[in-house]
Design a protein around this nucleic acid. Structure first.
Ligand code: SF4
Ligand code: SF4
Lengths: 146, 146
DNA sequence: ATATTATAGACTCATCGAATCTACAATAAA
DNA sequence: TTTATTGTAGATTCGATGAGTCTATAATAT
């Protein structure tokens, strides 16, 4: 079990967008170049973020992607769920309702555990990334922006 | 991202073993029958639990699987990690060490979140499953034991 | 109009979960 | 010691899905 690469790309892209001057958009090409991924694929990932309401996109010459909300209002959970979806990590194997799913302690425990993880992801914002990010990372991202 | 079916089988099997009289072993066939999975595949899953030190196996006529420790000493985390492994859910995409991995807030946050989940899984034991398990489940398991 | 940029869909490829099959090793009971 | 029983290991298969490519299309600023 592991997070998809798409989640990785999404998190990094959001952080990168947070470094831009407010309201400024940037195309997928430089974003893809930094992360060493193909533009078309990254675009596909970013489109899911658009649909999730985290960023907006605009075609055309001065188009690209930009944040909607401030980075202090975007949580890790927002990004992770936008990419990974909302299905629980653990799912009961029995389709037939032999068991009382409501009161099943196995499901309950597994879901509670997942919730703990989600709670933490919800408590951390992208703003904190930009604050605490290692200076070298910031410099690197800025230099790659060209 | 989701837990494998193997984790599901493992959790249920451990719970089932916990229902047996102390020290008694049971073969893979009834275990597989209850969970509607092939014996050979379940055996493969259980072998990983053997290697993880959660259960012991014995070949031969009166052989089978049985628990080593009491159910109050087996945590969800034990079972989950035995099957899913120890690799973190999130892994940095950059091989080259352009960034300071130690201080990266993205990795840090994702790993902390995973740890929250693990902490909860560590706090819950199989004993609690057997205590809180819905009576119908218990009855079902026992009846299937034949 | 035209260059630029995002989007959508079909498609490919590799990986991995899930499972099967078979051969083999170990053990208790006869 | 033989024999039936049971777990183990390896090779192999199958399908789903993550990851990515390619191409065509739509939208927009200049
Ligand atoms: S014990 Fe819980 S998780 Fe397992 S089959 Fe029953 S309801 Fe599902
Ligand atoms: S920002 Fe963190 S997770 Fe991303 S590439 Fe750098 S070290 Fe890795």
């Amino acid at each position: 079990m592991k997070y998809s690469k798409a989640t990785n790309y999404a998190l990094h892209t959001i952080a990168y967008l947070g470094l831009l001057p407010s309201g400024k958009a940037i195309g997928v090409k430089p974003l893809a170049e930094i992360q060493k991924v193909s533009p078309t694929y990254l675009s596909k990932v970013l489109t899911t973020l658009v649909k999730a309401g985290l960023i907006v996109s605009a075609p055309g010459v001065k188009g690209g992607y930009r944040l909607i909300k401030g980075v202090e209002d975007i949580t890790f959970l927002d990004v992770v769920q936008a990419v990974e979806g909302l299905n629980p990590l653990f799912h009961c194997s029995l389709d037939n309702h032999v068991h009382d799913n409501e009161n099943c302690f196995i499901q309950q425990t597994m879901n509670e555990a997942e919730k703990k993880m989600e709670d933490h992801l919800h408590s951390q914002t992208i703003a904190q990334v930009l604050k605490k990010i290692d200076q070298r990372v910031s410099d690197y991202l800025k230099s790659e922006a060209g």
